[in-house]
Nucleic acid binder design. Sequence first.
DNA 1: GGTCGGCATCGATGAACGTCGATGCCACCC
DNA 2: GGGTGGCATCGACGTTCATCGATGCCGACC
Lengths: 125, 125
Amino acid sequence: MATAVQIAPSARSSSESAGPGVACCAPLARKPLGAEDAVALARTLKALADPARLRLLSLVAAHEGGEACVCDLTEPLGLSQPTVSHHLKVLVEAGLLTRDKRGVWAYYALVPGALDSLAGVLTTC
Amino acid sequence: MATAVQIAPSARSSSESAGPGVACCAPLARKPLGAEDAVALARTLKALADPARLRLLSLVAAHEGGEACVCDLTEPLGLSQPTVSHHLKVLVEAGLLTRDKRGVWAYYALVPGALDSLAGVLTTC
DNA sequence: GGTCGGCATCGATGAACGTCGATGCCACCC
DNA sequence: GGGTGGCATCGACGTTCATCGATGCCGACC
């Protein structure tokens, strides 16, 4: 269901790398991007390319403790609760957020290196 | 058409300074993103969030001289010429590519600091 | 002048997406 | 046990998007 979208396409012939590898330099502007890598990268970017989801990420990151529950996010966005839940699910499936259900509340937090990995791919180093 | 949304007004290959407080850190993860800023950022990201456009950027950047014409890009993508033209237009309107028509050919090239500005916004510094 | 070729635009079509109300599920409290 | 409240899922609706064939525009060449 949740296809694990790896951001770093330069995992080939690499000794380490277990998760979303933080490749130092996998610049999109260095060599032609393969078709599959392009699809994977586009899938992650598509999860980001929405005003509501960008603000959700920002709100979660800026919230105290680095995490927030749905009830904290519905009001500042001006969207209904099902819509916010939907966007959060998209972000979780893209590997950008984590979901931690504690009791009745579901707390969302940023995945530590996710945004930076994305930034690294875009950087024309 | 209000596609004049730019991320950073750095028209030239910046080297230092940059008077206005843009540049170094406008991290999405630092403070809540405003609604308008979110829309503008999402518009740029949406231009990137497509496999064909990602490969186009990559092909243009990796091409000799840093520029390429449509005829160079149609074949490796496996898309029709109108489709490629459409994607290139989207990238130009997003401020990621420049179009330079010389004679019959139209040459596309990367906008120097565009991708790096985007990366800077995403980076959780 | 006439022809050729590269590229942009137009119109149409099918798929994907954002949004919401209604509903279901589950933990907690009286 | 019964009620309450937070959250996810479902179904539906309107909009946006990617793609293509056909066509128009314009510079280059004979």
